[in-house]
Design a protein around this nucleic acid. Sequence first.
DNA 1: AATACCTGTTTCGCTCACGGGAACAGAACT
DNA 2: AGTTCTGTTCCCGTGAGCGAAACAGGTATT
Lengths: 252, 252
Amino acid sequence: MHEVANPVTTVETAFEIVEYIAEHDDAGVSEIAADLDRAKSTVHRHLGTLVQRGYLVENDGYSLGLRFLDLGLDARNGRPLYHEAHAKVDELADRTGEKVWCMTAENGRSIHLYGASGAQSVRTDSREGDVGYLHQHAAGKAILAHRPLEHVGNIVDRYGLPTRTDDTITDGDELFEHLERIRERGYAFNREESIPGLYAVGAPIADDRGVAIGALSISGPANRLAGETLTEEFPELLLGAVNEIEINLSHG
Amino acid sequence: MHEVANPVTTVETAFEIVEYIAEHDDAGVSEIAADLDRAKSTVHRHLGTLVQRGYLVENDGYSLGLRFLDLGLDARNGRPLYHEAHAKVDELADRTGEKVWCMTAENGRSIHLYGASGAQSVRTDSREGDVGYLHQHAAGKAILAHRPLEHVGNIVDRYGLPTRTDDTITDGDELFEHLERIRERGYAFNREESIPGLYAVGAPIADDRGVAIGALSISGPANRLAGETLTEEFPELLLGAVNEIEINLSHG
DNA sequence: AATACCTGTTTCGCTCACGGGAACAGAACT
DNA sequence: AGTTCTGTTCCCGTGAGCGAAACAGGTATT
């Protein structure tokens, strides 16, 4: 997993500060210095340079600058997956009325790449750009199931299997069994493993070499995602959409 | 303008590398080192640490990681302006059929905060997150016109008045005259100052202290944005929308 | 197949600048 | 005036970031 021998520690502290501010909006020098166990002077200098470059803004405390928006949308636009999935996600949300997500994986974590809401879709706290754990979602499990086993092992070693609800998979062997069945079936379910009362179906999107680079998912309340809607209708819709995306991705 | 005495140079080089990659997708160690005049080993170590943190990804060269998307959308979500303007921008795009933008300013630069396309809207190369110059757009000029003169002077000193088309304002005195008229009128026009053939109207959004924190604009082809559509109808629509946004911003 | 020429990786000292402590300043509140 | 926060500035020691060069791996060229 490409371990770095000597990371540039100064850059690490800079991003520690940035990430702290992302979580504690409008934080000040003293607060940051105290919480990150650094000298105030150090934090002060870092903040100054980050502001000067537009990565932070100062008004009544420091907060994230919109420079990150530029880079972030650039990063998303650079993914062919985003362009191909965009319209399909909208279409699925429209047809099903539920919440539809395109997820991808990076660094062993899941990322909500693009989402669309249907007419009656639930409102979760998920947001585009959100970073999460692959084993906690239908889409994430679909991705894991279509990756080399060794790769999955590395991810589990690296991040563990953090829990979210009583039904989150927290045992390695259990996860591998699940993935086995998902692989046979071709798509994954999520029954309250991330949010109580929320069900979901997810199907993987593979590149031309057959490796999953992302997934689509449809999620909604357990009472609506029941019976054949969950086990037949939605999977079929997903597989159709995924198939089209895969063709567009590989044909160029 | 809050000049920083001793910036953390290591952090600066890190972001130089990030910004280089933003412009040169899939760049490699040697290429970056050569173009930025640094030792390969230095670049290599920086890349390693940035990858480890999820800010870059490596596959056939380095490209921006989706970690930036997380931070970027966080930054945008942190702005009340974004939340209040969102629905209004959609509505204006729907009613006018043209391209509508909500812009804001940061660090003396303009940022496309949120945009919506109407049924017949032109396709420009503008993108959400884009960083530009305030004097080149209707929205940007609207913002400048409703900022303290001294503030405008600082911005001009800092960035100059880069040109884009034959009609871009490149002279300081001319700019101040324009701004004077915009201030009296309450909104700004852009007649091919950023893109040939493109006209636009922009109106400023002020906070409760009367300082412009952003602006809305409607832009389209010069042949459609002509006569009273440009001088009466669209300005009126904009002022109505802006007024509502301002109330929502200050009341809650 | 041997060469040349890229690429990225690693090593290893030098010295620069990052980091921390402390002193300073300014505001808010008692 | 005193206290206690805040953010800012100064300065010095040393840790670590930087660069040169050697090394390795891969591809193209002859």
